[in-house]
Simulated scan of single mutants.
Amino acid sequence: MKQVGRRIEPPLLAEPSGAALADGLAFSASVAGLAGGRVFFPKGVFRYKSHAEANAHQAACLAEGMARLARDRRRG
Rank of each mutant, 00 (worst) to 15 (best):
Q58M: 14
A56F: 07
L12S: 11
A20Q: 03
E9N: 00
P11R: 15
G24Q: 08
A67Q: 14
R75H: 01
G37H: 06
A35V: 02
C61V: 02
G36H: 11
A70L: 12
A22K: 07
I8G: 11
A26V: 10
R71A: 14
C61D: 01
G18I: 02
A56D: 13
V39L: 10
M66V: 05
D72C: 01
G37N: 04
Y48E: 06
C61N: 01
V45M: 08
Q58A: 14
K49Y: 12
L69I: 02
G44M: 10
A20I: 01
S17Y: 06
C61A: 03
A63F: 00
E64P: 08
L34Y: 14
A26T: 08
G65P: 07
R75T: 00
H57S: 12
L69C: 02
K43M: 02
A67D: 14
A63V: 08
A60E: 10
F41C: 07
M66P: 00
S30H: 10
L34N: 12
K43S: 06
C61I: 03
E15Q: 12
G33R: 10
F46A: 08
P11E: 15
G36M: 06
H51S: 03
A19M: 11
F41N: 07
G18L: 12
S50K: 08
L12F: 13
E64L: 10
K49W: 09
L25A: 11
H51C: 03
D72T: 03
C61S: 01
A26N: 04
A63I: 06
K2V: 12
A54L: 15
L34R: 11
A14I: 15
V31I: 15
V4H: 04
R71V: 15
G76L: 05
G18V: 04
K49A: 15
S50C: 07
A59G: 01
K43F: 04
R71M: 12
A19F: 09
E64V: 00
A19Q: 11
C61Y: 04
L13W: 05
A60P: 01
A35E: 04
G24E: 04
G44C: 08
F46E: 01
R47S: 10
C61L: 03
A19P: 02
S17H: 07
H57F: 15
A20L: 02
H57G: 07
E53L: 09
R6M: 00
Y48N: 09
E53T: 15
D72V: 02
A29Y: 07
G33A: 07
A22I: 00
R6S: 04
E64S: 11
V4M: 12
A60T: 05
G18R: 12
G37V: 06
Q3H: 08
D72N: 02
F40I: 07
A54N: 13
S17E: 03
G76K: 01
V45A: 09
M1Y: 10
G65F: 10
D72H: 03
P11D: 15
D23E: 05
P42V: 13
L62V: 00
R6P: 03
A60V: 02
R68G: 04
M66F: 08
M1H: 11
A63M: 01
A52H: 05
E9W: 00
P42M: 11
G37L: 06
P11V: 11
R73Y: 11
E9P: 00
L12W: 11
A56V: 13
L21Y: 00
A67G: 13
P42D: 08
A14P: 09
L12D: 02
A35S: 09
N55G: 15
H51M: 08
A29E: 13
A20F: 04
P16W: 03
I8M: 13
F27Y: 14
